[in-house]
Every structure is written in C-alpha cells, then in structure tokens.
C-alpha cells in the first residue's frame, strides 16, 4: 500500500471538547475525548466504512475530516495536502473536493429555500468566487441534470423541503453534495434516519453514483449490514479509537478484536437454525465515560479476554495480515 494512492489519510486524530464549570467564572473542568487518536486511510475509489456504537466518535471524526470541527491534534491529509495547515482561503477552495451527506434529511435542508436553490447553492457560491466557471444558465442545466440523476423529477425544482418525503429529501442532500463534482463523499449515517424500505433505495443510488462519478467514500453507520453491503473496507471504532480495520469479507470471516467479535455476534442472522446455534458474546457493563482520565486499553473493563498488561498500556493498531490491522495485545506486541 503506497502512500500516494491514499486520497484521505488520517493520523492520530484527536478531538477533545472542553467541559466548562461555573456560570460567571467559567473554568475548564476537563475534556470529553470524543475522538482520541484515530488512524485510517481511504484509497482512491474505495469505500471505507466507519462503524461503532453511539457515542464512539464516528460522527465527530466525520466532521473533523470535513473540516467542520477543529481537530485538537493529529493530521488529515487529503490528496497529499494537510488540510489543517491550509489558509482559510485555500481551505474554501479545497472544500469542493470533499462533500458531506448528512444524517438528518430534515435539518440538513434550509426550510426557506426551494429544492433547486438548495442544490444549486454550492455552484453559485463557487461561481461567484471565480473557482468554478459557470453562468446561471449552465448552473441551471447542471442542477436539473443532477436532480434527474438522483431520482428527483425536475418538476419538483420549485418545491420547498417540507413538501418532500424523507427519502426524497435525502436525494436532494445527495444531489447537493455532488453538485461541485467532489472526489470524496463523507456520508454521515446517510440512511439511518430513513425507513428500512427507503434505505435500500438510497444505498443503491449511492452505489450507482459511486460508479458513475468515480467517487471515494468515507461511510459512517452503526448498522453493520448497511456497511457490509456498501463498503470495501471497514474500520471499527470504540471509545474514540479505531480498534480494527480489514476488508469487509475478511472482517466478517475472521474478526480478531474482542469488541469486533462481540459486535458481529450481535447481528441477527436470517437463518433461524444458525441464529439459534451460535454463541452470542454478551459484553458486561457500559461504555466508560469519554471524559474520564484513562490508562491502558479503552476496552479492558468489558473485554472477556483482558490481561494484566491491558490496564497499564494501550495497544496500537498493528498489521496482523495483509490489509488487516488490530489494536489488541492478543495478537502480539505493538
């Protein structure tokens, strides 16, 4: 895996939120370590799935990659460029190459704008900045063809968001994300707010668009079935860290980290025979508070295979097979 193939490379990413105490004399009382040292990379044309339970920092990671949330530490390299070191002007130019599809199709569209204007807005902004060369006629042509491509009738162009269903709204959000011709799409749980019947439609749309527009995906979800369907490679997150990355097939067949195993054993199987016969791994306890000062492996309190050393030092991600990285002492030193 050579570095120049990587479209996105995240190293040691940390996002800490200060906790304030006191109303008049505010002081920092500690930090919520939402993201605490995340490493992953996404190759050009690949779809990397980021999976984990609520509160493990997936969405914060996505917002940090999208440069909507300042990182406390670490680097985010996009197409070889360190995004954190760009000037505000250069960052604005770079933004069109990575776009976001948001989770909530209701709050992600401005209720006072018509569908057409929502999708055309990015083009208009960049045309005004002189970065994209398009006049109003060209913007209209591109916007309408995008609407059609995303499965929206162009006769809906003048409607307001409240006149659309959840699935249609998400299509508008997707069309908006595509309007600048981005290289990377950061999809922050794009289907988890939708009905199950609509989920597959939207997933298939994203799959088609990925092929047609040659897109790279950072796909965030908490639903393993969705991730396995859409992604080539999967990174599993726990308490602000990536604990395991592998190709989708490899992870399914050969999960290594105790947390990944527990997670996979919780996915219901369609075959009732198999479902009954398999052993579910039940984790004890809850996810520890991300604001607590911690030493050692973040998973050790709940880990069925915790060893003495896990309490003293934290394991790092380490390659155990081709394209398979685990952060656990069970698989040797790291």
């Amino acid at each position: 895996m050579s570095d120049d193939e990587n479209l996105l490379e995240v190293r040691g990413l940390k996002v800490h939120f200060p906790i304030h105490k006191g109303i008049i004399f505010r002081r920092k009382a500690g930090f919520v370590r939402a993201v605490d040292g995340v490493d992953f990379s996404v190759k050009k044309g690949e779809a990397l799935g980021l999976v984990g339970e609520s509160g493990c920092g997936k969405s914060t990671t996505a917002m940090a990659v999208a440069q909507l949330q300042a990182a406390t530490a670490g680097s985010i390299r996009f197409a070889g460029e360190d995004l954190g070191s760009l000037s505000p002007k250069d960052l604005r130019r770079a933004r069109r190459h990575f776009q976001i599809v948001f989770q909530d199709p209701y709050s992600s569209l401005d209720p006072r704008m018509r569908a057409f204007d929502i999708i055309a807005e990015p083009l208009r902004i960049y045309a005004r900045l002189g970065i994209v060369d398009a006049d109003e006629a060209e913007i209209e042509r591109r916007t309408l063809s995008l609407m059609e491509r995303c499965g929206l009738s162009t006769s809906f162009a003048r409607r307001y968001p409240h006149e659309f269903s959840g699935g249609q709204r998400q299509r508008i959000g997707i069309a908006r994300a595509l309007s600048l011709g981005p290289k990377l799409i950061i999809a922050d749980e794009p289907v988890s707010a939708l009905d199950v019947s609509i989920q597959s439609q939207i997933l298939n749309l994203l799959k088609d668009l990925r092929k047609d527009f040659d897109l790279t995906f950072l796909f965030i979800a908490h639903d393993l079935a969705v991730i396995e369907y859409f992604c080539d490679r999967i990174a599993v997150m726990y308490l602000g860290r990536v604990v395991e990355t592998a190709s989708a097939a490899e992870l399914n067949k050969n999960p290594m980290h105790p947390y990944t195993r527990a997670l996979l054993s919780a996915v219901p199987l369609p075959d009732p025979e198999k479902e009954r016969s398999r052993r579910r791994i039940l984790l004890k306890g809850d996810v520890p508070s991300p604001s607590a000062e911690r030493k050692g492996c973040p998973f050790r309190e709940r880990c069925p295979e915790a060893m003495e050393r896990c309490a003293f030092s934290a394991p790092n991600l380490r390659a155990v097979a081709e394209g398979h990285e685990v952060s656990c002492f069970l698989y040797g030193e790291a």
């Binding site: 130019r93 933004r95 992600s108 600048l180």
Partner: peptide
Amino acid sequence: SSEFVRAARSNGASSGF
C-alpha cells in the same frame, strides 16, 4: 447548529453569506 448551516459551510459559504 442545524445541519443545513454546516452544509453551507462545507459548500464554501462565508460567515456573512
């Protein structure tokens, strides 16, 4: 804090806009 404000930011919109 709505997502559409974040979306606008990621689409290159300035604070004034």
